[in-house]
Design a binder for these strands. Structure first.
Length: 420
RNA sequence: GCGAGCGUCGCCCAGUUGGUCAAGGCGCCAGAUUGUGGAUCUGGAGAUCACGGGUUCGAGUCCCGUCGCUCGCCCCA
């Protein structure tokens, strides 16, 4: 026996019929996006690794320990994308798509890669859908993107998820918050977990989403971002909340929600789903007003989110939500001997010519076995061709749902099926 | 990177204190009178019990190692 291979750790093969479920999620997402005027964008699976280091932030876990980095044959440092936004911003800048009073609204469906130990809801190659909206500064865009995000889940039928919302401030108000936070934390520094002590140097905000009970307790009374918002950030946030309420999109204020990417400004949100286990985030999003400039483009605000496909699927399963199944359709054309098999193949081809699904047997099976196969294929019709049929020129067409049979002139079968 | 559990036919899995040990279900194939599916019945194919060592008269069952999977920590989709 030759050596056999397995899919790499943390990757998965998506086989039928599960692939139908994936297709359903994707097509639903496309439909929702188009409703909001978003168009599809596709960017490379790998980019210069510097793009991610610069865009996402050197100090983030994603960049510091989870990237699939490799050197290409030209000695350039490349990385499999660990998330979608950086590459799309790069494309936006590269193709000079910025313009005054214009918005570039795109959606995507992509694989992302992170070198981590896989567990429930977490993979090394994961899949996300998401949108990005470049241009608008105002909270209307925030509200629209969040609404789109929630519309997808609604359309899928997912229930029991929770939208959590925060505002992280902007370069005007952040420094004062950061300083206040650092001061508050340094008083209790010794009681923080080792990781958080390190975070105090790199990004004190991240202490907020530490899961250690001690850090949580210490941070509970620490100054939150919303308390330090400048006047503009305040009114932006207030307006957004007003819009969400007016759209009847319930949310929970999450003053300690900070997200793991450095580029977010002002609005940040995530959607949690309690049934998911340790990885309870269905998606994450936020505004990134400084990112385009950071990546060499003209100062352009942006906002977007990314949602995990695997996690949405899991939520669907947990909720016992059935996706629309395939109803019985299509035809198996059965031939019984050499000559009728030949005719069966030609007839199937002619049925396909009418835009209908048709198949034939490949294994020289008998009538009974072929009927059984028709059933397994989920076919609606079986068309039988044997010696008698070839002689009379009339095929037996059997409706597998009702069991009714009729004789139809062989050449009329495609049209007959088309009308049926 | 760390911790825990698991690894028996394509799939789900039984295998008691080590001695008919390779069982059952699903699926697959073939029959149940002559050219007909989905139900039932009968039969059949299919497993060197993840891999490599060790203990023992004897190991799927005990020990060690390797690989893999799963769950958790960190963090996130």
């Amino acid at each position: 026996m030759a050596k056999s291979y397995q899919a790499p750790r943390g990757t998965q093969d998506i086989l039928p019929p599960v692939s139908d479920r994936w297709h359903h999620l994707e097509s639903t997402f496309r439909k929702v996006c188009e409703r909001y005027g978003y168009q599809e964008v596709r960017t490379p699976v790998f980019e210069e690794s510097g793009l991610f280091a610069r865009g996402i932030g050197d100090a983030t876990d994603i960049v510091s320990k989870e990237m699939y980095v490799f050197e290409d044959r030209g000695g350039r440092s490349m990385a499999l994308r660990p998330e979608g936004t950086a590459g799309i911003v790069r494309a936006f800048v590269e193709h000079k798509l910025a313009g005054e009073k214009s918005a570039w609204k795109v959606f995507y469906f992509m694989s992302i890669f992170r070198y981590e130990r896989p567990q429930a809801g977490r993979y090394r190659q994961a899949h996300q859908v998401g949108v990005e909206c470049f241009g608008p500064t105002g909270p209307d865009a925030d509200a629209e993107v969040i609404a789109l995000n929630m519309a997808w889940y609604r359309e899928l039928g997912i229930r029991g998820h929770e939208l959590r919302l925060n505002s992280l401030g902007c370069p005007v108000c952040r420094p004062s918050h950061r300083q206040a936070l650092s001061e508050a934390l340094s008083e209790v520094r010794g009681d923080l977990c080792p990781t958080c002590q390190g975070r105090m140097e790199t990004n004190p905000l991240r202490v907020f989403d530490c899961k250690s009970a001690e850090c949580q307790a210490l941070v509970a009374s620490a100054p939150s971002t919303v308390d330090y918002l400048c006047a503009e950030c305040q009114s932006h946030f207030a307006r957004l909340r007003d819009l969400l309420e007016a759209m009847e999109l319930p949310y929970e204020l999450a003053p300690r929600l900070v997200r793991g990417l450095d580029y977010y400004t002002r609005t940040a949100w995530e959607v949690k789903y309690s049934g998911l286990g340790a990885q309870d985030a269905l998606c994450g999003g936020g505004r990134y007003d400084g990112l385009v400039e950071e990546l060499g483009g003209p100062a352009t605000p942006g906002i977007g989110f990314a949602a995990g496909i695997e996690r949405a699927l899991y939520a669907l399963e947990q909720g016992g939500i059935e996706i629309p199944g395939r109803s019985a359709r299509g035809t198996l054309v059965i031939g019984l001997d050499e000559e009728s098999r030949r005719r069966a193949l030609l007839l199937a081809e002619s049925i396909r010519g009418h835009g209908l699904r048709a198949e034939t047997d490949y294994f020289d099976r008998g009538l009974k076995a072929q009927m059984k196969q028709a059933d397994r294929l989920g076919a609606r019709w079986a068309v039988i061709l044997g010696e008698d049929e070839l002689k009379t020129g009339r095929a037996v067409v059997r409706d597998l749902e009702s069991g009714d049979q009729s004789e139809v002139p062989i050449d009329d079968v495609p049209g007959w099926l088309d009308r049926a």
